[in-house]
Design a protein around this nucleic acid. Sequence first.
DNA 1: GTAATTTCTAAACCTAACTTTAGGTCAAGA
DNA 2: TCTTGACCTAAAGTTAGGTTTAGAAATTAC
Lengths: 157, 157
Amino acid sequence: MKVNDGLSIGALADRTGLAVSAIRYYEAQGLIKPWRNAGGQRRFERADLRRLSFVMIAQQFGFTLPQIKAQLDGLPGGRTPTKADWAKISEGFRAALDTRITTLTRLRDNLDGCIGCGCLSLEACALYNPTDRAAKNGQGPRYLMGDSPEPIAGPKG
Amino acid sequence: MKVNDGLSIGALADRTGLAVSAIRYYEAQGLIKPWRNAGGQRRFERADLRRLSFVMIAQQFGFTLPQIKAQLDGLPGGRTPTKADWAKISEGFRAALDTRITTLTRLRDNLDGCIGCGCLSLEACALYNPTDRAAKNGQGPRYLMGDSPEPIAGPKG
DNA sequence: GTAATTTCTAAACCTAACTTTAGGTCAAGA
DNA sequence: TCTTGACCTAAAGTTAGGTTTAGAAATTAC
């Protein structure tokens, strides 16, 4: 025996660097679907190594597990990404990254304009409602505003 | 009466856009220190509006509440940031932002090199161990690795 | 064959940053 | 005065992404 009965969860953990508990959690979230052997233990395909690599990379890009699952589910036939799939998915990653970089850069530039302004009274400040992290919980405007500490002869910042 | 007995928590909430519960939470975390009126209700200084604005902005920059508290506590006399303080603090913000932008940009460039590579078997891939979000919990190497799906005649990516 | 190692499940626990709830008190307006 | 509405505390609940624990069963090693 031991022809091709798949990888144990421990083997998968060793080869990905993930904790066994994390792999079980990913299964619970629907990211991987191992089968069970006669004794009820999980057995994984080698392709699951690539699926997990994909998950780990996508997390670095800031995707949540449901989003990652959506990307994996979106593959025809629910297969693990091939080279061609990966190229396609990568473009999505690139777009997401570009957006984040742009947002942060704008934030930084606004900050540069604000340094020395001192106006934490922000109705007119460039940092007012910076569009990033907006409406994080749908909890209302969450606008930034302070009192006017003193008349500010400040710039447009 | 009603000369200058401070702002109620509701007034503060209205003017900052924060929830009342959030303001109480910030007090519990030591970010603001209101006094109590005769009836035991919180009363805030107008300067607390600026303190809270500062907290909200710093959060947008990705600082945690303990980090923000440290910045506020670091001000001489524990006062609310003045114009000069703000300029100084802003430089810290800018440095933090620059770091994040640099990291994301490098990640994106590595991704560009990897598109079309298809190797989610990442020992040699540029996305291998991307230094961002590294050792998030001190949980060990968390290296990214897959099996070799097929011999790859790929580039250096 | 037996001991040591893995694996199993379910449930509880963890952090951050809050919100919600329950049961009461205070303050302001008609 | 009476009645809302704002406020109080303490404790529990929430979300994401897991980890830890406990007790039992399977597998591997010798």
